[in-house]
Simulated scan of single mutants.
Amino acid sequence: MKYGILMGMILLSYFAVGQEMSVDLKKRNQAAEIANKAIVNIQQQNYEAAFPQLTRAISIDTTLRKPYLFLYTLATNREEYRDSALCLLQRAKKIFQQDDEICYYIGEIYKMKGDLNRAMMEYSMAIAYSKMNGADFYLVPHYYFNRATISLQKNRFSSAIIDYSYAIQLKPEYTAAYVNRGISLFQAGKPEDACTDWKTAMELGSGAATEYWERNCKEKE
């Protein structure tokens, strides 16, 4: 008798779990479908339609990562969505822990808003997490580049040089990193090294590097 009751409880429990999983799957599919419609609208630059679709997808399934990521695209193109996108991405940061891409997007939005200190903190977190998650992700060089650029703006030339160097190590043809590292080196009192970077960037096709090189290096050659 006890055995029968126990088996009945196990089956009931299993049925309840299975039912719960099917509901979750249904919500996941519904959220994904709405998110995909939002992505199409973003591609067509129909941002007014895309934003409520992304937020709707998130409200249905808060653990679906894709719609959070496309909030960054909206924030990039439309200033009025930046605060809302930032709030939702901060929520995503708690759900998807140690997610370097999400930290990077938060940093980007803070940079758009002019809050460079918070942007740098987020870039630093993105860099730290990328060391755990793998530095082969295509955005990782930009984590270093963007943190370096804030350091350059703050006249922290040594820090900028280190980060630009990491960006170049990860992406050897990163033209903008060569240009900006050249600026940092020049400001740090290393004009010869700066000219070497600008010449490399020139060879990679950078017009900006050509201007720097002609202004600061041409007569010394």
Rank of each mutant, 00 (worst) to 15 (best):
His142Leu: 11
Ile106Ser: 07
Asn133Phe: 02
Thr210Gly: 04
Glu33Lys: 14
Lys113Gly: 06
Arg91Ser: 14
Asp197Val: 03
Arg156Ala: 05
Arg215Thr: 11
Leu89Val: 09
Met125His: 01
Thr76Trp: 02
Met202Tyr: 02
Cys195Ile: 05
Arg156Leu: 06
Tyr72Ile: 00
Asp61His: 08
Leu71Ile: 03
Ile102Lys: 10
Ala201Thr: 08
Met132Lys: 15
Tyr68Val: 03
Asn133Asp: 10
Ala92Asp: 05
Ile39Gln: 11
Gln187Pro: 04
Tyr166Ala: 05
Ala35Trp: 04
Ala50Asn: 07
Asn41Ile: 08
Ala32Cys: 01
Thr175Asp: 05
Arg28Asn: 13
Met9Arg: 03
Asn117Tyr: 06
Arg215Lys: 14
Tyr123Glu: 08
Gly8Leu: 10
Met21Asp: 09
Ala177Tyr: 01
Arg118Ala: 11
Arg56Tyr: 09
Gly189Ser: 06
Phe137Gly: 02
Met1Thr: 09
Trp213Met: 01
Tyr138Val: 12
Pro172Phe: 11
Met1Phe: 10
Cys195Gln: 11
Ile168Phe: 11
Cys195Met: 07
Ala126Val: 06
Ile106Met: 10
Ser84Met: 09
Gln187Gly: 00
Ile42Trp: 13
Arg78Phe: 02
Cys217Lys: 05
Ser184Leu: 10
Lys199Gln: 10
Leu88Glu: 06
Thr55Asp: 08
Gln53Arg: 05
Met7Lys: 11
Ala194Lys: 03
Asp100Ala: 15
Val23Gly: 00
Leu116Pro: 00
Lys154Val: 01
Phe70Ala: 02
Ala135Tyr: 06
Asp99Leu: 09
Tyr105Cys: 02
Gly205Tyr: 09
Arg82Trp: 03
Tyr47Arg: 04
Lys190Thr: 03
Glu33Arg: 12
Tyr178Glu: 01
Tyr68Gln: 08
Asp163Met: 00
Ser151Leu: 05
Ala194Trp: 00
Tyr144Gly: 08
Leu71Ser: 08
Ile34Gly: 14
Ala148Asn: 10
Lys27Ser: 00
Met112Gly: 03
Val179Ile: 07
Asp136Met: 09
Gln30Ala: 13
Gln30Ile: 12
Glu80Ser: 13
Ala160Val: 06
Pro172Gly: 12
Lys199Tyr: 02
Thr196Asn: 03
Gln98Thr: 05
Ser130Trp: 11
Arg91Ile: 14
Met125Leu: 15
Tyr178Met: 01
Lys66Arg: 13
